[in-house]
Design a protein around this nucleic acid. Structure first.
Length: 384
RNA sequence: GGAGGGGUACCCAAGCGGUCAACGGGAGCAGACUGUAAAUCUGCCGUCUUUCGACUACGUAGGUUCGAGUCCUACCCCCUCCA
């Protein structure tokens, strides 16, 4: 009873700092469904499934938090149906921590299908064309029904090429919507994270951080990045903003990313990431490996008997040859999509683990240098 | 033996006098993918050339025509039906 009471009075999700090196930091994210070591990469399971992978496979690679998406799950199968089955954890058979995105990203990615007003966003369902409406209150209601440990504020995510005036408008709206999310929230076992916008303008970013982080929330995210800007621009934003996020709360960089992006962001003090890249690229035939990016479709792998990544301990790499994986891709066999997706996630899980270890051991700058060498940016490749 | 249909690039296939190096598919080759409308999308795909362009091509050999994958003749193959 005492324990229960104490837990009830604490935020659902807390951050515990374990070690740091310069701005990079190692910690533990405590949630009602278990604790996760950070920095951490969170696989994306938009419609209630990390595409191609079963929960036990995610478990075996050490996945911590898994994502779901408010917009997609609202359209299908509907949050009420999920709630009747005990919530998202129970429905998708993931007993670890979960996070649901608010639908804010769909304001960006489905821009052609929606209309934004102060009240919220009118969507045209991409599934059947029906009219839908998402607002901060509606997003909170849906996310409460889904029951994830971490829920995201409903924000407006403008594209990278948006005009300054539009960025500013999105910032103001995102702040007002955040306050409405806070007001609508009535599930103490869920942790609401605020989202910072501001494009790649450093002043606007800093301004919006001050706005968003003045709210008492258990975690904060940088949104509106990796939406079309250059990597260099994103790094600059991270360098000038990540450290300004509250140090006693988890910092989440949404929608990132590539191995290089992840390590660069860890260097700036980011703790959490999510990205569709490992699974999408896996389905499309590209793999992240210790030798850099590999396109398994390439003819040069037709008779390559070696593993996808010689340094990787994952099931794909310890079981299949490149020649076989390429054959599976050519033959359009679904196994290769699973195998590459699983490998890519293992790669990022391993990368995050190396970050944590390096931070503890004070060797993170070496890892950063190594990552920069292995994963050059397009501009760096062009120079070379 | 008779009647009919057909042979087009790696494969399937359109084409019915010029605008055809030849529509479409497939295969092949390469690229893209960052809070997932994605097992998707883009480019190349006769040879040589970065481009312009040149050359070789529509079963084979002739012919008609200013011009033929497209028309005519012969021949060689394939398929269907009748004997």
């Amino acid at each position: 009873m005492w324990g229960t009471k104490r837990t009830m009075s604490q935020p659902a999700v807390t951050y515990e700092l374990v070690a740091s090196q310069d701005k990079a930091r190692r910690g533990i994210l405590h949630t009602p469904h278990g604790s996760v070591e950070t920095p951490t990469f969170m696989p994306v399971g938009t419609v209630g499934s990390v595409k191609g992978l079963a929960p036990w496979e995610l478990k075996s690679m050490g996945a911590g938090v898994v994502l779901g998406n408010t917009y997609h799950l609202h359209l299908r199968p509907g949050e009420e149906l999920i709630a009747r089955r005990g919530g998202l954890h129970s429905f998708v058979a993931w007993d670890g921590p979960m996070l649901t995105d608010s639908g804010g990203f769909q304001v960006f990615s489905l821009a052609a299908l929606n209309q934004i007003t102060e009240e919220g966003v009118a969507f045209r369902s991409h599934i059947d064309g029906s009219k839908r409406f998402l607002s901060p209150e509606e997003s909170m209601r849906i996310q409460k029904a889904l029951g994830a440990d971490i829920i995201m504020a409903f924000d407006q995510c403008p594209p990278a090429d948006a005009e300054r005036s539009m960025i500013e408008a999105a910032m103001g709206r995102t702040t007002r919507w955040l306050d409405r999310c806070i007001a609508a929230l009535d599930s103490p076992q869920q942790a609401l994270f605020g989202i910072v916008q501001g494009g790649i303008d450093l002043e606007l970013r800093v301004q919006h951080i001050e706005e968003i982080c003045s709210r008492d929330l258990p975690g904060f995210a940088l949104g509106g990045l990796s939406v079309g800007e250059t990597n260099e621009a994103m790094y600059e934003v991270l360098e000038h903003t990540a450290y300004r996020l509250p140090s006693d709360k988890p910092r989440y960089l949404m929608g990132v990313g590539t191995p290089r992006d992840l390590v660069e962001a860890v260097a700036q003090g980011i703790d959490m990431f999510d990205c569709v890249l490992p699974t999408r690229n896996g389905r499309m035939g590209t793999a992240m490996t210790s030798e850099g990016r590999i396109n398994i479709k390439n003819a040069r792998f037709a008779e390559d008997d070696g593993p996808l990544d010689p340094e990787c301990p994952c099931p794909t790499c310890t079981t299949f040859s490149r020649a076989y994986l390429r054959h599976l891709y050519q033959a359009k066999e679904i196994l290769v999509m699973r195998a590459l997706s699983e490998h890519n996630l293992w790669y990022l899980m391993g990368l995050m683990e190396r970050c944590r270890t390096a931070i503890s051991e004070g060797t993170f700058d070496q890892l950063l240098a190594d990552t920069r060498a292995r994963w050059p940016l397009a501009s760096e490749r062009a120079q070379k």
